[in-house]
Structure formats: C-alpha cells, structure tokens
C-alpha cells in the first residue's frame, strides 16, 4: 500500500488487543449453505463486494480448520444434528454468524420441519436479518462481529486454563457446552 514508511518503528499496545486484532482479520470461514441465502453469500464473497478486504477470504471445507461458521439458510430438524456436530468439530476460538431470517428465527417457516432459529442448537454470535440480506448488510454484520472479537477477552475460549483457575479458587465450575448438552448427536 505504500504506507509502511509512514509508520513509526515501534508501536506500543496491549497483548490482548494485538491478539484480538490478529484474530478479527484472519477469520477462516466454514460456509454451511442450505438455501437461497447462499447466492448472497456468494455475491459477498466474490469480487464485487470482496469479503477478503476484511480478512475473511478463505472458505475452509473442513470445520477443523475454520474459525467462523456461517449458517446460511433454513435449517430443518433432520439437519440439526449435523449442524451441532460441525459446530463441535470446530477448534476454539470459534464464532457463529446466523445469515438471514431463516437461520435466525425460522423465518416464515413455522411447521413440522423447520428449526425456529439455530440458537436452539448452537450459540450464535451475530445475527444478520434479511430475506436474503444484501451484501452490504452481510459486511455490516461481519464488521460488527470483528468489533466483538476485538473487544472480548483473549483467553475467553481457553476453557482448560479457565477451569484450572476456577478450580484453584475453589469456585464450582460451570459445565462446558458438551457437558451441558451431551454428545447425543
């Protein structure tokens, strides 16, 4: 960019802030695309809107390599166990974006088949409304998620460390996600 010569040689910052900055600009994503919202996801990812400007350019088709799970489209009850399993296969730290109203609330589907919002299955960090949302909305949601990542404690996801510390302090530890919901799937 030709800006490097204008930067000072030394920048002071907090380590937590630096880690947050690195994390928010290197989101490897796992697109879980099930419905028409996928077209808007593709539009956002392609050259015109160019999601790579925000460091979220690489879709990984293995959940073990991904940080950010995009749930794009309607999720039905038959599919729910697989979505839960994919979420659990992702390594920490991980975030989830619910893309479009169907993923967020079930949308206009309220029947025997459809999950009324994926937050009934997995925790969600950011909801993007719209049916489907325009790429501008998607990028806005991504920026808000980046803001959240920047501001959250950097060891928030270090469960082992957190539990060890709590145990040393004699605090009754809170159950992990797996303990809370079991490994039924």
């Amino acid at each position: 960019m030709g800006l490097e010569h204008q930067l000072p040689e030394v920048i002071t910052t907090r380590l937590e802030s630096a880690v947050g900055w690195a994390r928010k600009h290197s989101l490897f994503q796992y697109p879980f695309v099930t419905a028409c919202c996928g077209m808007e996801y593709m539009a956002t990812a392609a050259a015109r809107y160019d999601i790579s400007r925000f460091g979220a350019e690489i879709p990984r088709f293995s959940p073990r390599q991904a940080d950010l799970l995009w749930v794009v489209g309607t999720v039905n009850h038959k599919l729910a166990p697989f979505l839960r399993r994919i979420y659990e296969q992702m390594a920490e730290p991980k975030w989830v974006i619910s893309f479009g109203v169907c993923a967020s609330t079930g949308g206009f589907y309220d029947n025997y088949a459809t999950v009324q919002g994926i937050d009934k299955i997995i925790p969600v960090d950011m909801y993007i409304p719209g049916c489907p949302p325009r790429p501008e909305q998607v990028l806005d949601g991504l920026l808000k998620l980046q803001e959240k990542i920047q501001n959250e404690p950097w060891d928030k996801y270090a469960y082992e460390e957190k539990r060890r510390r709590r145990l040393a302090e004699g605090i009754e530890e809170e159950p992990t996600f797996l303990e809370r919901f079991g490994t039924k799937v």
Binding site: H77, N111, Y112, T114, K184, V185
Partner: peptide, 9 residues
C-alpha cells in the same frame, strides 16, 4: 397440528 415439531436432537 400445523406447528407441532419433533426436534430430532
């Protein structure tokens, strides 16, 4: 019942 769902999980 039109809204009766049976969550598979």
């Amino acid at each position: 019942a039109k809204q009766a769902s049976q969550p598979r999980l």
